[in-house]
Write a protein that binds this DNA or RNA. Structure first.
Lengths: 206, 206
DNA sequence: ACCAAAACTTGTCATATGGCAAGAACTGCT
DNA sequence: AGCAGTTCTTGCCATATGACAAGTTTTGGT
């Protein structure tokens, strides 16, 4: 039987090597807080094409992606499939309005590849949010960060040409561009796959 | 000298008639919480064309609008003025990324008319947020609500024709459409004032 | 290794929206 | 009331992007 000291050391090691430890690094969360937080997240896996969330459901949990790629999309009034967001390792996958307003979501969230994720349910989240100060700050920061990213994307849709939007995405998220199909990237940028194909050709010819 | 009971009654009345009491109504905030919250907000006024926030500044406070209209805008890389958001009575005016990341803002927020607002600074906000449970919930709800509105707007920019975007705005925020200049509404919708003028004509002729 | 399905490219033509500029209608100031 | 500045409308033409459809290439399952 290991002595208590040994046990503590093992736990400390486990925390330090934990994927979420990297995600929460530089957030000011203390080691003690981390030991409260990490056990609340459970490892789940998704296979390619599995749905994390389907339109009409209420989201009661969310995920951090350790590995794999995920896409969220909506079906517009004309029946077109429009990619709303693309996620990769380290990203948080959450439909904030559904999670916090208990509202049926309008979006579908689907694994593009096999994925390893860390899941937390709403109750656990709420408890941590209300008791762990730095977790609260960190999670509010995530939400604000999502808002900011969406804001920049929205401005880009208005102010930039399609080609500039693509170059911007390529610069900011090259791993997404390399791993996601042209069609999905195109609708995320607000253009058709045909147009994006032409834009790529144009860039290649420069 | 009024007796204590009378004083309490006066305060209760003052709270009940307070503009912010309406704003916070239906948020689950108790009367006791309300008495902690409301004194933290101070009434400020802006004159037409005053800036609430200028590009490059860090936002250290935010506002609820009691009366008047406000516009936020950014100057894009080609020097175009693009309306990012339009605010009216009851709305919260805040640049979340600047406020919570202490980052210089990219946007300008300007009064379109004389305004009466209720202001709270970051420190007071933070204190209420960390101590008053229902305030925390309510304010998180505001942020999520802003995210949701931006999300819908962003989807609309991709999925809808300019005319549909205008009709959508007209339906959801008729008071904004009626009180804000065509130019500002146009850039908010991602089109030129010329195009919006034609769209209005087209609608009028139907 | 092979076939079917999916992903991507390319051509032709259509159209929503932009750019620019001139004029008309407001608005606010003295 | 009158003038100056702003806001809105309208015309003409340019262009970015879409729609559709036919090919080509890549991918994945057996």
């Amino acid at each position: 039987m290991p002595n208590p000291k040994q046990k503590t050391k093992n736990m400390t090691d486990a925390i330090e090597q934990h994927f979420l430890n990297k995600v929460f690094a530089s957030s000011g969360i203390t080691r003690e807080e981390m030991m409260q937080i990490i056990p609340r997240y459970k490892k789940v896996t998704f296979e390619k094409n599995d749905y994390l969330l389907k339109e009409g459901e209420v989201e009661k949990k969310y995920w951090f992606i350790e590995s794999g790629f995920v896409r969220s999309y909506i079906i517009d009034t004309e029946g077109n499939d429009i990619t709303f967001n693309l996620y990769a390792s380290g990203d948080v996958v959450i439909d904030y309005p559904s999670m916090f307003f208990f509202a049926p979501t309008r979006e579908n969230i689907q694994a593009l590849t096999d994925c390893i994720c860390w899941e937390i349910n709403f109750e656990s989240f709420q408890e941590l949010f209300n008791t762990v100060l730095n977790y609260r700050e960190q999670q509010r920061g995530l939400l604000v960060g999502s808002y900011f990213a969406l804001k920049e994307h929205s401005i880009s849709l208005i102010a930039d040409q399609a080609k500039d939007r693509y170059l911007r995405l390529l610069k900011m998220k090259p791993h997404i561009v390399q791993n996601v199909s042209l069609k999905h990237i195109a609708t995320f940028l607000g253009i058709t796959d045909t147009s994006l194909s032409r834009i790529r050709k144009e860039i290649a010819n420069e």
